[in-house]
Simulated scan of single mutants.
Amino acid sequence: MIYLDYAATTPMCKEAVAAYAEAATVYFGNESSLHDVGTTARKLLTLCRRELALMINGEAEGVYFTSGGTEANVLAVRSLIAAHRRKGTHLITTEIEHASLHHLFKQLEAEGYKVTYLPVDRYGRIRLTDLERAVTPETILASIQHANSEIGTIQPLADIGRLLRARGVLFHSDCVQTFAKIQLDVKAMAIDSLSISAHKVYGPKGVGAVYIDPRRHWKPVFPGATHESGFRPGTVNVPGIAAFLTAAKRLYERMESEQLRFEQLRSRLLDAIAAKRLPVAVEGHRDARLAHIVGLSVNGLEGQFVMLECNRAGIAISTGSACQVGLQAPSRTMIAVGKTPEEARQFIRVSFGTATTEADIDRFVSVLERLVSAGKGANQG
């Protein structure tokens, strides 16, 4: 099977598997225990916290490990707004956030918060003027993703961060798709809080992290919790965290070379589509986007059909975010960028990873060409 769905999840790298096995065997203690076995586990956890902070130019005391990106998003937003509720009840987000945040903000509306959902342009970018107009004296926090998981469009976090900080609004960003792919700098970007996930960077599933600027006050979502400085309950997954940081460091150290390789693969894919004159449009921003995520609209064919036919041909792609699979409604991102529901259902996503080759790209284009030709024949018949 040719795997072209790395934006959904990645396989654990062998180094992460080895790190997990060693940590589970040697550092198996509960890091909260006061005996030597617990102390050993705590020292490893402290090292992991420092390593993660270095990768985002943050402080180790601001790192809190979680069970994944979804929990990271929910706990970060809830813990920050709970601590600043006295300021007001207004929140800001975008129309194209990950499902975990979209559903959270809908829930917060039901709880009495007022939420502004910023629109995006046809390329999936917010307008800074819209953000500026949305801020009110009662605005507590804005949550704006770093990059969209379906079309790869990158938001201008530094500009957003400066705008929000100047107005005293907390800034959270879902950085699950960008961590260890492009450089993150919480200080330069004026980010107060961000979320990341291990399984997007060749680490284990069920592990993630939140970074909260130590200067920002937060209130525990679970009162009485003792783990992770009270940020969340439950015994800390030290082996999973060790595997997470092992994988993340490995990817981080190869970040520039991998991004260059992804740009080459992307060019090969788009050049082949153009050369064969396939009725396929590239979605997302031309320049401000992740190299390894390619959103495509196949005119005349439903994305679900293309995905299933690719699967039959031994190629794994997707029709968007894995967290939205099975829903009847078309992609929120596609609707937000101006597509009709019918057009939105023609969307597919191809995403590259460390094992992706030029031959994989050529095989995918060949299958896509066959499907398009078959679709033309059926329409003419």
Score class of each variant (00 low, 15 high):
V169E: 02
P233A: 12
A23I: 10
E358W: 02
F305V: 14
L327F: 05
Y27W: 09
G124W: 06
V115W: 04
N148D: 15
C310T: 14
P137L: 12
A180W: 01
E138C: 06
R85Y: 08
S351W: 03
S195M: 05
A248M: 13
R363T: 15
A209D: 00
V238L: 07
V26Q: 09
M12S: 05
V238H: 01
A281D: 14
V176C: 10
V210W: 00
E309W: 12
Q304S: 13
D130W: 02
R312W: 03
L108H: 03
C13I: 09
G62Q: 05
R167M: 07
R232C: 03
I182M: 10
G284Q: 06
G230I: 13
F305Y: 14
L91K: 06
N148L: 08
L4Y: 05
S193I: 07
L194T: 10
M307P: 00
A316F: 08
T340E: 04
D130L: 02
R133S: 10
M55W: 03
H103S: 07
G300N: 11
T129V: 11
K200N: 04
F222L: 02
A336G: 11
V221G: 00
E263C: 08
A225D: 07
V77L: 01
L301D: 04
F364M: 14
G320P: 09
H292F: 15
F262E: 08
D5Q: 09
G230R: 10
S318W: 01
V26S: 07
L54F: 09
L301Q: 06
G62M: 04
G314A: 11
E59Y: 13
E111W: 07
T25I: 03
D185Q: 05
T153Y: 13
G353A: 10
S197A: 15
R363S: 14
I335T: 10
S366H: 13
A24K: 13
K339H: 11
T357L: 12
Q264F: 00
T246V: 12
S79W: 01
A134T: 01
K339L: 12
G338T: 09
R49N: 11
G320F: 06
T89H: 06
A24Y: 03
A198M: 07
G375D: 15
K181S: 01
R125E: 09
V17A: 14
R215N: 09
H199K: 05
Y20M: 12
R277C: 12
K205I: 01
V238Y: 02
S197G: 11
L290N: 02
R261F: 02
T319W: 00
W218S: 00
T235M: 09
V176M: 02
G58D: 08
L194A: 11
H90A: 11
R42F: 03
C175E: 07
G161H: 05
R127T: 03
D185H: 08
I196V: 15
H217P: 00
G381I: 11
L260R: 13
D271T: 08
L251C: 14
N299S: 15
F65W: 09
Y123C: 12
T89D: 13
R86V: 05
E302K: 09
V221M: 04
V337W: 02
E369G: 07
A243N: 11
S366D: 15
E358T: 04
Y123A: 14
S143D: 08
A313F: 07
R370H: 13
P119F: 05
G240D: 14
G326A: 02
A60Q: 12
Q380I: 13
E258I: 05
A158V: 12
R345P: 00
V325G: 00
H217G: 01
E256Y: 09
Q324G: 00
Q304F: 01
V325M: 00
E369P: 04
